[in-house]
């Protein structure tokens, strides 16, 4: 479904990704973890060309992403949920959810709104349909952002640290929605620091450090007997027993 081949990314002199190779299967839930600055956010942003790789290739559904075709490939295949939510502040929640289906996927207003209310029910915020994003809490905004991603009926949803900007109190409500989604046949790639979530939901965990993939495996392997010292060191710091 997603394939990264020898992806390198430089920002000026800074090498952020050094030969990243990764394949995500259809319906797979892939969780990416690692220390700050390890390149996991850059990797996920390369998957929808918010960052275009300096070299290497990205394939979506077998099609090679290019600067020319990215808008269409993304429109047809991928959505993203951001750390800062990035809802459109000048639109109501309902408009946020219907704008892309109506303008990009040529759905009628009625179809788009039915879809929007369906996914508002999924995230449990039907009553906020006519509110403006700034009037909602962080957790609510992020659940709306997830509903917005679902409304385009993408087969792939990318989550770039979706709970990192939230109050501790509202993190769980967002994770609960994501756990619910994980039961569907959607391909999910999640960059997160929530180890509990990773353990519960991931089919596979990828650990990155220094712009490279250090280790990957299923959660059991990963949390119980990781091979590399770098992963052990990281887990030792992050998991409070």
């Amino acid at each position: 479904m997603i394939k990264l081949e020898h992806v390198y990314k430089n920002f000026g002199d800074l090498e952020v990704l050094k030969d990243v190779n990764l394949e995500v299967k259809e319906g797979e839930k892939l969780v990416m973890i690692g220390p700050s600055g390890s390149g996991k956010s850059t990797t996920i942003r390369c998957m929808n060309f918010l960052e275009e790789p300096t070299s290497g290739s990205v394939y979506i559904n077998g099609e090679k992403l290019t600067h020319q075709n990215k808008t269409k490939v993304i429109r047809d295949n991928i959505s993203m949920v951001f750390q800062q939510f990035n809802l459109y502040p000048h639109m109501t929640v309902l408009k946020n959810l219907t704008i892309a289906p109506m303008k990009l996927h040529h759905k009628s207003k009625k179809e788009a709104e039915e879809l929007a209310f369906h996914y508002l029910d999924v995230v449990g915020l039907r009553e906020k349909a006519h509110a403006y994003p700034t009037m909602l809490s962080g957790g609510q905004q992020q659940r709306i952002a997830i509903a917005r991603a679902l409304c385009t009926e993408s087969k792939i949803i990318l989550f770039d640290e979706p709970t990192s900007a939230l109050d501790p109190e509202t993190i769980q409500e967002v994770l609960d929605v994501m756990i619910k989604l994980a039961k569907e046949n959607i391909t999910m790639v999640v960059v997160t620091h929530e180890m509990g979530f990773a353990r519960q939901v991931a089919d596979r965990i990828v650990f990155m450090a220094g712009g490279q993939i250090i280790e990957e495996g299923n959660p059991e392997h990963f949390f119980e007997n990781p091979e590399s010292d770098r992963v052990k060191q990281f887990l030792g710091k992050i998991i409070r027993k």
Binding site: N48, L50, T71, K72, I74, R75, D76, I78, S79, M80, F82, Q84, F85, N86, L87, Y88, A100, K103, L104, R148, T152, L158
Partner: peptide, 17 residues
């Protein structure tokens, strides 16, 4: 904010849209 441009791009809006 740059996040608005990114959100729009991530939904598949082209430059003019």
């Amino acid at each position: 904010p740059v996040g608005q441009f990114e959100a729009a791009s991530s939904q598949g809006f082209n430059y003019i849209e």
